[in-house]
Design a protein around this nucleic acid. Structure first.
Lengths: 219, 219
DNA sequence: TGAGCATTGTGAAACAATTCACATTAAATT
DNA sequence: AATTTAATGTGAATTGTTTCACAATGCTCA
């Protein structure tokens, strides 16, 4: 069993979404069509689809329904997979709303808080527990994925709780990079980093714009 | 002028943050210390710092204050760089709160909405305009970065407005990959994709766990 | 039926990012 | 002053990802 490239896994969700929209309208699709929708090259799409073990046919492309089936078999859990979220502040609540009912097999089953005013009741349709009970709740509900949306200072503490309780994947919105054992997959979503990066490349682009203008004016 | 690796730019924010915390406590720092905090290797940290044109000294490492200066010179805009955000729903408002006062040289100067109940007033300390005025507001305020936090269907429309108004960097929270000219840097933050990816690798990790247990029991 | 065509699947090449490995260096120690 | 030590900076190797390029395929149309 060879390991699937991380980027490829990330793109399957994208393909799924594009295909789902397409399903009504057409039965077949070409790699170059998917590529243009996904802002990729046709070769990359075909490369990605190789890992599914499903082949299209020349001249007809891929059967939309069959491709969806294969992506779903790859990407969707076969039994319900549960998620917990720590922190129901700004970001936590935005996420609860965002994921509500998105994918039935992948469900936020619990949230955790330190603030007693918030826990031991439902928050946006999701039961909220004290962070002190995280270990037992995670184990009882068989939760495998954790989202960290707490202040930076508490992020590592929560991550430790998650790991100790057997969670195998973490999405981290805190700016602190988390220490975690290698069998736990950590995805950092750092808005400050994204912001600084985009701002940097926007400046570069502006700079080369103005350089081109000055070049132009020298002619 | 050689181009800086994208990932490296992303990591400078991280280093900055770590160094800022450190500044009080110590004047010098080693690459392996930064690496452990950032969950990277020492070689990678040194490789990244090479692009700053600042060298540490053997046996003493890097001067924390000087390193901060160099990172700031690289990463922070020298004059105020302005950001606009389209959509002040869940995610939009969470972002407005998140970025409020984070970095004075990089400021969200305007927000846009289609909903007349929301625009033409302040939203979380930021003036909110009708999306119809986006072009002129962006040009007048000299905004160079745009955040797209509108529903998927409207994302491309907003992106087109942004690009036409001269924006050079976009952070896109919609699931639609955006069509944009190559001189516009687009960073997609797709929560659904991150979620599916983390869930996938969490399952893989669980699987290899249980395989190891069954292997164990075969002994 | 068969020629023409546009597409697939994939080995190989190219490119990007990371890690290795080690010569060099400055401080600390003897 | 010489030796030891533990860093740095970086060429080269490695790893990971994307793109190229083309043989093979199956549909269309004469």
């Amino acid at each position: 069993m060879k390991t699937v490239p991380h980027r490829t896994v990330g793109r399957f969700t994208l393909y799924w979404h594009i295909l789902k929209d397409l399903e009504q309208e057409q039965t077949h699709v070409y790699s170059h069509f998917l590529a243009s929708k996904a802002r990729l090259t046709a070769a990359q799409v075909r490369r990605d689809l190789m890992v599914l073990g499903y082949s299209g046919t020349p001249a007809r492309g891929y059967d939309v329904r069959k491709l969806l089936d294969h992506i779903e078999a790859f990407l969707f859990p076969s039994t319900e997979q549960r998620i917990a979220i720590a922190g129901v502040g700004n970001i936590g609540r935005a996420l609860l709303k965002f994921f509500a009912g998105r994918q039935p097999m992948l469900r936020i089953a619990a949230s955790f808080e330190v603030n007693p005013e918030k826990y031991d009741r439902m928050v946006l349709g999701c039961p909220c527990y004290s962070i002190d009970n995280a270990g037992s709740v995670i184990r009882e509900l068989g939760i495998t994925v954790g989202i960290i949306a707490v202040p930076d200072k508490e992020a590592q503490f929560v991550a430790n709780l998650f790991v100790a309780a057997g969670i195998k994947g973490i999405i981290n919105f805190a700016r602190t990079p988390l220490q975690a054992p290698p069998d736990v997959y950590v995805e950092d979503i750092d808005l400050a980093r994204s912001m600084d990066k985009v701002a940097y490349f926007a400046r570069q682009s502006l700079k080369s714009d103005s350089m081109m203008i000055s070049k132009e004016s020298h002619k």
